[in-house]
Design a protein around this nucleic acid. Structure first.
Length: 557
RNA sequence: GCCCCCGUAGCUCAGGGGAUAGAGCACCGCCCUCCGGAGGCGGUGGCGUAGGUUCGAAUCCUACCGGGGGCACCA
């Protein structure tokens, strides 16, 4: 009995009451009856507030409606008891066997347990990081790598079709400064004031010269371009390798330059012109984003004929839509939040629905502490801690888990000592340890010749999982699909992490008081194999959940 | 000046209208005869302020106070 099944049962009971004429619901039976897990155990296994919600519409008192429903629900398959509480809550207890069968369902579903079709048929483009290829990836990028990737995974679990995309900002003045900086360093000249300064610039310059010994002999202008291009390739390759090692893989690396090859920009301007939101003023071409709530209109083509960055963004967006994506998700840093309004307005100018086709998620800053002090400076980049340094300091699993257990829109302070500690007070180890322990129990069981019930042909009696702590664990496992679906819907993968911590805790409590394997010479019984099935189910859920965060689920630690 | 985000325990953070607001750190205690003690159990302690909507608000709305960020024919 999952919350979803219970919800359906309640909806059916409501429908019956309506059919009988006992109840009148002008708006019909709600499609989704909310079933929640009460905090307080005295309030049952599950509770619903439908009676409170519908009472006014039905023209009866909440408790009266609750009474009708309770009567109808009592005796339904899987329902052990129904109580009316407070202003009109229905507190429901389910039978042990109805609840226990879930263990078998989870094991049967395996890696697919937790997936759904709630977003099936929708094509998502998730763009994240999109760093300039002019330097190493840093702490900020690291957060988007984790969150963007986890969002993509969770969307896929909800049945969506997802493309992960990295937009390479390989065009424009930053690139010129980058080339000039490399060149200056290689020639022993002073780096331009507004150029790039970190130590990595020196390393890169050296590499460039090592690979192209004759580059320094090129004529003035040509030389800068050659440095820019060589540095770009090296830097991009480094970013790609580091991200791949960080288990963040992109389907598409989209070069801004490629956008300007061919007629894509002109094409997108044409599209916008057709929609009637372009105009010329002061010799420049503008988009009237104020038609859609932006605080000012935006220039696309400057009076000197140059395209603005915003023109690229617009063409890029139009291109994404023409590639067939229904929803374009952008993960941007907090410093770009001023961009949200104009991006949305731009989508509207292109004839799209800004509430549907474009989503801009703003991530807040991360600070990192070590020894109680904020780490600000990086040896390599000069300004910020790099992804590489973070991985070396913290490790991929810990880093990924820690960054994915907080909502991206809340500012965050991490303590290096705390998140690398190999102890239960470190959430990532707490969850991974639970998985390793579950794996160990299954290994030990196999050695004793005990297999999970139902798996090896032995019958599974779900009513044997009747302990209060087994019930708690089962209900937690039953929540998983809903948690994943919600995480996908809200683009909040941190919900998965929090859920895993809670489930791991439920497991440890169960383990502490329910003996799974036979003690000493004890003969294996049906209880042992039933519990072993519950262990297998729990392991499946933890492994699937960790997988959604891109974190490993170790068999041993 | 205008716009956006954030104020929850001493600290770092969860809580997308529901019943007694949670977790980790820190501090004080308790629990191992056998499945991994990398575990379990308990204690101390909190929703910035004032209104409003609601049967019900940490959650939605308004104002104020406090913190952060953004407002280019920059990229």
């Amino acid at each position: 009995m999952t919350p979803e099944e219970l919800s359906t049962t309640i909806a059916r009971a409501l429908a019956t009451l309506v059919d009988e004429g006992t109840l009148r619901l002008p708006d019909g039976v709600p499609a989704d009856v909310v079933v929640e897990r009460p905090r307080n155990r005295d309030h049952g296994d599950y509770a619903t507030n439908v009676a409170l919600q519908l009472a006014k519409k039905a023209g009866v008192s909440p408790r009266e409606l609750a009474g009708m429903l309770a009567e109808r629900l009592t005796g339904s398959p899987g329902v052990a008891s129904v109580d009316i509480a407070g202003p009109g809550f229905l507190n429901i207890r389910v039978t042990a066997d109805a609840q226990g069968v879930l263990a078998a369902q989870v094991v049967a579903a395996g890696p697919s347990y937790g997936t759904s079709q709630t977003l099936a048929g929708t094509r998502f483009n998730v763009e994240f990081i999109s760093a300039n290829p002019t330097g190493p990836l840093h702490l900020g990028h690291t957060r988007w790598a984790v969150v963007g990737d986890a969002i993509a995974r969770v969307l896929e679990a909800a049945g969506a079709e997802v493309t992960r995309e990295f937009y390479i900002n390989d065009r424009g003045s930053q690139m010129e400064k980058f080339g000039a900086s490399l060149e200056a360093v290689a020639l022993g000249r002073a780096v331009p004031e507004d150029g790039y300064h970190g130590a990595y610039v020196h390393d890169l310059a050296q590499l460039v010269v090592a690979e192209n010994p004759h580059i320094v002999d090129l004529p003035e202008g040509e030389r800068t371009v050659a440095f820019r291009e060589a540095g770009y390739k090296l830097q991009l390759t480094q970013q790609q390798q580091q991200l791949s090692a960080f288990r963040t893989d992109f389907d598409i690396w989209y070069s801004e330059r490629s956008l300007h090859d061919g007629d894509r920009v002109a094409h997108s301007l044409e599209r916008l012109r057709e929609q009637g939101h372009l105009f010329e003023a002061d010799g420049a071409l503008w988009m009237r984003t104020t038609d859609f709530g932006d605080d000012k209109d935006r220039v696309l083509v400057r009076s000197n004929g140059e395209l603005t960055y915003f023109a690229s963004d617009t063409a890029y967006y139009v291109d994404k839509r023409e590639r067939g994506f229904d929803v374009c998700v952008y993960l941007l840093g907090a410093d770009h939040h001023g961009y949200v309004g104009r991006l949305k307005a731009m989508a509207a100018c292109a004839g799209d629905d800004p509430e549907v086709n474009i989503e801009v998620l703003i991530g807040q800053l991360v600070k990192i502490l070590r020894g109680g002090e904020e780490i600000r400076l990086s040896k390599r980049a000069g300004t910020m801690v790099t992804l590489q340094e973070l991985v070396e300091m913290i490790g991929v699993d810990s880093l990924r888990y820690t960054l994915s257990r907080y909502p991206a829109d809340s500012p965050l302070t991490l303590d290096v000592e705390e998140i690398t500690r190999q102890a239960s007070d470190n959430p990532v180890f707490y969850v991974q340890y639970a998985h390793a322990r579950l794996s160990a129990i299954l290994r030990n069981g196999a050695e004793l010749g005990i297999t999970p019930a139902g798996a090896g042909g032995s019958g599974f009696d779900p009513s044997l999982l009747s302990d209060e702590l087994e019930g708690e664990l089962l209900r937690s496992l039953a929540d998983f699909p809903r948690v994943v679906a919600t995480a996908a819907q809200l683009r909040e993968p941190h919900r998965v992490a929090r859920y895993l911590e809670d489930t791991a805790s439920k497991f440890h409590r169960f383990y502490d008081s329910c003996r799974v394997l036979p003690m000493g010479d004890e003969e294996p019984t049906a209880v042992h194999s039933a519990r072993l099935l519950l262990v297998a189910a729990t392991r499946t859920v933890l492994a699937n959940g960790l997988g959604l965060l891109g974190v490993g689920a170790p068999e041993r630690m």
